[in-house]
Design a binder for these strands. Structure first.
Lengths: 144, 144
DNA sequence: CTCTTATTGAAAACTATTTTCAATTATAGG
DNA sequence: CCTATAATTGAAAATAGTTTTCAATAAGAG
């Protein structure tokens, strides 16, 4: 997957630098949302030259290109992960942070009803499910 | 409505001060989510002694008592508004920020399906609708 | 009315993020 | 392969948002 991201970055005229590669590899392979600091710390383990600023700057670009998304959680909204595709939403484990995509929500008739009742023209929705993943239920910790 | 909030605050042993009254009146009567600074600015117009710190501290308590909730929006997650009741969700106007409550989402079968498919025990969900309110559609600005 | 203790505002501290800037480096074109 | 150039870098400074500290004040119980 991260190869595609490199291609997209190149298509938009962005250079492929060590810092960017590190950030891309870390986020694109994570099953949990990661904060800038978490990404920075992981990147440092591979290359201890990388700066936190570059993490922020890379995140900004990846978000612009819609390759990643900010994840809103009760504990905060600083973490990022791979972007959902159209019609995909997130299911989050409240214990270990493991995230899965799902689709198939059928909000059409609800949206229609609410639109009629309120006079709003409804054009987007956010849906997120929270729970406990199988690993956490059975007592194990998920891998970081 | 804000009378109920004063009662709740008193029940929990909180004193009813001018700063708290101002914050409570402002939030409890707003149809838009307000940031701490916005609340502070409005409160200042009535009482120019109030400090921003007290706004933060009051918000903290109102959130603890579940009288208000933080509202997550594309532009940020610092704003607060009256808490949703059980099963209520938000419909937001992307243009003027006007917010309505709605209920009646029927996610039971979706949640069941996803739980089965993923092994998660799903115990909560966030749903928000976005759109353009009637006033904004017809070109007017909503009242602040 | 008085006493106690919660609450206050201001300033300082802290955290998260963005900007500035000179040095470096990816990459297009020779 | 070189070279030129403009994008990118990391560090430091700046900014924004929030929390803590602290002495002064004031709510409200008795």
């Amino acid at each position: 997957m991260h190869q595609d991201w490199f291609t997209t970055l190149a298509q938009y005229g962005y250079r492929l630098t060590g810092s960017r590669k590190a950030v891309v590899e870390i986020i694109s392979s994570s099953t949990q949302a990661l904060t800038p600091i978490e990404i920075y710390e992981r990147a440092r383990k591979v290359n201890d030259e990388i700066g936190l600023v570059s993490v922020y700057r890379t995140l900004e670009k990846l978000e612009e290109l819609k390759l990643i998304q900010r994840v809103h959680q009760p504990a905060g909204c600083q973490a990022f992960m791979v972007a959902s595709r159209e019609h995909q939403h997130l299911l989050l484990c409240s214990q270990c942070g493991e995230i899965r995509f799902f689709e198939g929500d059928d909000l059409g008739s609800l949206i229609h009803t609410i639109a009629k009742k309120t006079g709003f023209e409804i054009n987007d929705h956010w849906l997120q499910l929270f729970g406990v993943c199988q690993k956490c239920k059975t007592g194990q910790e998920a891998g970081a």
